[in-house]
Design a protein around this nucleic acid. Sequence first.
DNA 1: GAGCACTGC
Length: 714
Amino acid sequence: MPSMSANNFSRNSHQHHPNQTKGDFFARKQKIEQQRKNLPIAAVERRLVEEVRNNDTLIIVGETGSGKTTQIPQYLFKGGFCRDGGIIGITQPRRVAAITVAKRVSEECGVPLGQKVGYAIRFEDVTSGLTKIKYMTDGLLLREALLDPYLSKYSVIIVDEAHERTIHTDVLLGLLKNVQKARSKCISEAVNTDHNNSNNGHASEGRIDNQNDGILKPCQAKKYHPLKLIIMSASLDARVFSEYFGGARAVHVQGRQFPVDIFYTHKPETDCIDAALITIFQIHLEEGPGDILVFLTGQEEIESVERLIHERLRQLPECNRKLLTFPIYSSLPSEKQMKVFMPSPAGYRKVILATNIAETSVTIPGIKYVVDPGLVKARTYDPKMGVDSLIIVTTSKAQALQRSGRAGREGPGKCYRLYQESFFEKLTDSTLPEIKRCDLSNVVLQLKALGIDDVINFDFIEKPDRTAIVNSLWSLYLLGAVTEENKLSDVGYQMAKLPLDPVYSKALIVASQFGCLKEMLICVAMLSVESIFYAPREKLEESRNALKSFASPDGDHLTLLNVYRAADEFFQKNKTVNSEEKAEKNLRKWCKDNYINSRSLKHARDIHSQILRNVEQMGLRVTSCEDDMLLFRRCLAASFFLKAAMKQPDGVYRVTLSGLIVQIHPSSVLFRAKPECIIFNELVHTNHSYVRNVSRIDYLWLIELAPHLYALQD
DNA sequence: GAGCACTGC
């Protein structure tokens, strides 16, 4: 993703130009030095390094624009924290942030990316033996912990953007707390006792034992340095982190943000879309130059606001029509997303209609005005029913603040909140942490693989609901990952090694026994990505026809398989006559012609090659069932038996385990066919309860292949 | 015949 820039970073992410002259190079170097010196954080460099030296855990609250993400690792490097061979790891919740920040820091250090400074994200490791400052995603560090439970190569770990409280950040914090304790225990033991523990810690190498106070097993102390932990957060909720880490010291670093005037409405608004439109035109007609960013809840709302803006523009005199609209949301194809970054033609004003993708993930330059209706489409999870819901709720105060901040990145700005000030006061301080609103099977499996058996009593910074954990344990038990004694089974340990939803990991193991692993690898890779099909409103008919050429009467799983195979065949054929690069480009064109989201397909292909490598390493045999689709569907039933449904006389479906009444989602190829018995992968509640990714099966297969659940029923 | 915010391994 070329010109997307990460949070906190849009003003100074220039690229190193390959053919610049020596003079340019020195001028540029000097400029970078100047910029670094001017950062608010530069004034407290020595104090910060001292704080880290004196405190094993430090909370740093740094406002936007303080430079904490780029500077602190460099200060610590200079301060000698890598001297014993340890490295500094910095985690980010998002991939783009890890990449762009690493690029900037390597440039500031005047070294090529991947040497002293590098980054690692899924599918991409730009580090080497020389790397001392390593930026990475938090999910990746969690994975590393599975291979190296003591995270022994790190002398410092910085968890950045901790206030976002992603599920990975929360689990990581718990893990790091354990690792830190264990590593300092090792060292104190080594000092206090004559270390005759040379045969310790080998039997369970690769697993953490937390039977004693949630601490790792004693280890060979010489191997480990104490671990310095830094939690960086943008908001003022340092207290939560500080309390969690036993009253850890918290320091505050000034930021640099231009002032943003906040406006509220005088009366409550009943029609948000209308209020947004009025505000947009008010800004357009009365305010000075500068682009407008409008936060909306979803694709549909964005499309209708866009339509209404164009309608109203036509009613304005010619001279007032210089307003351009740009939608941006995650399922929009990249080339359309990129358009928001193009500067507007002279005299024109841009209106960017965005979901909360523009809140943190994407920074759009030129924004001076923010319109915030105060709503967001949020995902919640009901662990009892296994239902995801997507509902529109009010934002938190922190979110509102984050949104208004988007107006003050390049100069003073204005933010129009489409609600009353008294309403703002009633908003919750921050958004509910993700760990409280999603399926936990993966988290539970990962923790168990790390040797943390008592997940219910794990020291989470925020405890998930007990029922959520219990239900995850139950489904892991039904998948054979956990034994009746609540211990991880061998199958469970294998499943934990795969970077997939546990149900999908299990499907690969089942498929290897059925002899259709080749097909299941594709199927699981496709199920793991979002929206493979792209259906723009204006070309609904064409996109539907395109889908027909891939559709299988047996369901969405085989349809996805057909799409992947068609794409792969096209790509392989192309590669015999073209360069890899050209073939990739042609594949993107092929996707466009077939109304397939090329970004999603690329992602599926990446996942496919990664999990193919994984299963080969695990020693599974990758065989194909060729054209025996009956066998493959039986394998789907044997894998996804937890989510099956039967047709009712009135045409709706009843989920076998929960009794929930659902419908097949209209995007499914089985929407009209309505077979008697189905398995599905996703249950989402929007206006109705819908199941997605559905395949036709025979109920008798469930009795045969999942007798532990189905043989007892009537 | 409906429609899905965002991340991540």
